[in-house]
């Protein structure tokens, strides 16, 4: 008759400090690429435009409107619309950072049978997805939200006034809302691509097609006067959809509401794909 040792039931809730699973997954997802030097260099490079913008903000504050003539456009402005322009300009870095952080997130788990290891533990699909989405969103925020928020603070410090208080209150809220929507949407789509197979390189190719080729096709359409080409501008739709939040004019010759519907449909589709693909099915090789 075996001795029933019950001393190992220490997992019963006892007020112990237990990290939520999504946080453990997110932390691991972020720690791995940060061990290497080049993702850090890329993050640094992604901040160069913000530094340039900061310098322009500073010089304009000192040299007046002359700078607007020299550089011009929304990009130099520290208004919400200016930040949307700035974030649009970051799209190449967004592509690189998200693909580095997110391309392998589900594909590698499928390849390395991580899914059966995850889901044989007290982890729900929501925990798993939450952790993975957080990894990509963190990367997205690092090259868009974080420099924008710092520029808000910098802008206020350069020209402190009652009017520029908006930079400390409303603009950060708009930026947060925008980042939450675009970051979550891009993360879900990227993760859905990542869940479609086990080869990371294919995810990179598809993400490049979506982010870069869509943008290029849209621009070609602009060049030859065909607005309908912009319907395939994947990144453009996200920025167009949030143009209302950022009090900006539409970023595409497509109504923002249409872009919003497209983006929501993409998110719903991505969630459906993820729900069907993330299963603890072991691939024995």
């Amino acid at each position: 008759m075996p001795v029933h040792e019950r001393g190992y039931t220490h997992w019963n809730p006892s007020g112990a400090r237990v990290d939520p699973p999504w946080l453990v997954i997110a932390r691991r997802g972020l720690a791995a690429p940060m061990k290497r030097r080049w993702p850090l260099l890329l993050l640094f490079a992604a901040w160069v435009p913000a530094i340039v913008k900061g310098v322009i903000v500073f010089v304009r504050a000192k040299a007046g409107e002359l700078m607007d003539l020299a550089v011009g456009g929304d990009w130099t402005s520290i208004s919400p619309a200016g930040f949307l322009s700035f974030i649009e300009g970051q799209r190449f870095f967004v592509f690189l950072v998200t693909v580095i952080l997110g391309a392998a997130l589900v594909a590698a788990d499928r390849r390395e049978n991580g899914l059966s290891l995850y889901f044989s533990r007290p982890i729900s699909l929501l925990d798993y997805l939450g952790g993975k989405v957080l990894v990509v969103m963190a990367g997205y925020a690092a090259v868009t939200l974080a420099p924008s928020l710092l520029l808000c603070l910098f802008g206020y410090l350069v020209e402190p006034s009652a009017a520029s208080l908006d930079l400390l209150l409303l603009t950060p809220l708009r930026l947060l809302a925008m980042t939450a929507f675009v970051g979550a949407g891009l993360s879900l789509v990227l993760l859905a691509l990542s869940s479609m197979g086990t080869r990371t390189v294919l995810v990179v190719v598809w993400w490049a097609v979506l982010c870069l080729a869509g943008d290029a096709i849209g621009n070609i359409g602009d060049g030859i006067g065909l607005d309908s080409f912009q319907y395939v501008n994947f990144m453009g739709h996200w920025h167009n959809a949030v143009s209302l939040i950022m009090s900006s004019e539409a970023r595409l010759p497509v109504p923002p509401a249409v872009s919003l519907v497209l983006c929501l449909a993409l998110m719903a589709g991505a969630l459906l794909v993820l729900r069907n693909r993330i299963k603890p099915v072991e691939v024995v090789v």
Binding site: N113, S116, S120, P122, I123, S124
Partner: peptide
């Protein structure tokens, strides 16, 4: 999901995150 705290699983495949 909480019941999985009492479950341990050793998969067949030895493909682990290298």
């Amino acid at each position: 999901v909480g019941l999985f705290r009492r479950v341990g699983f050793c998969p067949e495949s030895d493909a682990l995150p290298g």
